[in-house]
């Protein structure tokens, strides 16, 4: 235990306030569901409380929180996916692809859409991706994991990670281009 303020509860509240947006963002981007993301964020902070003596002044606390949030969110997805697949209520979408589609990348630079509106547009496009494309994208671009690390976390092959990233990026760029074109039209 390090020398800190005499009120650990107040310290923990301050710790939570400092990091809750980061933890929640990680969870909500992986899960694309605000209710489930809040559940995951709650579990992360409950775990953090058990290790608060180590985490409170640690410079690596944010890394620990993000890693736990990522793992819990992925576990959450896996648990539900396994249940749905077994009961035949969902289709597995993580089989090896038979071939890569011929994708033509859209012009990625939206013109008139800027600032907050563009962020909302990108965020919505990301949230609209299917899980098997969204999760690798989030892990690669937000959590900055390598292909291999993503493959290990998701228990899929590296080739599958690359394919899903490829398709995910293509779908994301296409949606952004379409949405921004619509916004351009509306603005014009």
């Amino acid at each position: 235990m390090s020398a800190s303020s005499p009120d650990p509860a107040a310290d923990f509240v301050a710790f939570m306030r400092a990091h809750q947006d980061r933890v929640y963002s990680t969870a909500v981007r992986i899960l694309a569901d605000s209710v489930q993301a809040e559940d995951v964020a709650q579990s992360v902070f409950l775990k953090a409380y058990e290790r608060f003596a180590e985490l409170r002044d640690s410079p690596t606390a944010i890394g620990w929180l993000r890693a736990v949030a990522t793992n819990l969110a992925i576990n959450h997805l896996k648990r539900y996916r396994r249940r749905f697949v077994f009961l035949g209520e969902g289709q597995r979408d993580d089989e090896e692809p038979e071939d890569l589609p011929e994708l033509v990348m859209p012009d990625p630079v939206p013109t008139a859409v800027a600032g907050t509106q563009r962020h909302a547009l990108v965020e919505a496009a990301l949230r609209g991706l299917p899980e098997h494309q969204r999760v690798p994208l989030v892990l690669y671009h937000f959590e900055e994991l390598s292909y291999l690390q993503i493959a290990e976390r998701l228990q899929i092959s590296v080739a599958k990670v690359k394919t899903d990233l490829f398709r995910g990026r293509a779908a994301l760029l296409r949606t952004i281009a379409e949405q921004s074109a619509t916004s351009d039209l509306l603005a014009g």
Partner: peptide
């Protein structure tokens, strides 16, 4: 960052 809900 997505703001965490007040209830968290």
């Amino acid at each position: 960052l997505a703001p965490a809900p007040e209830s968290l």
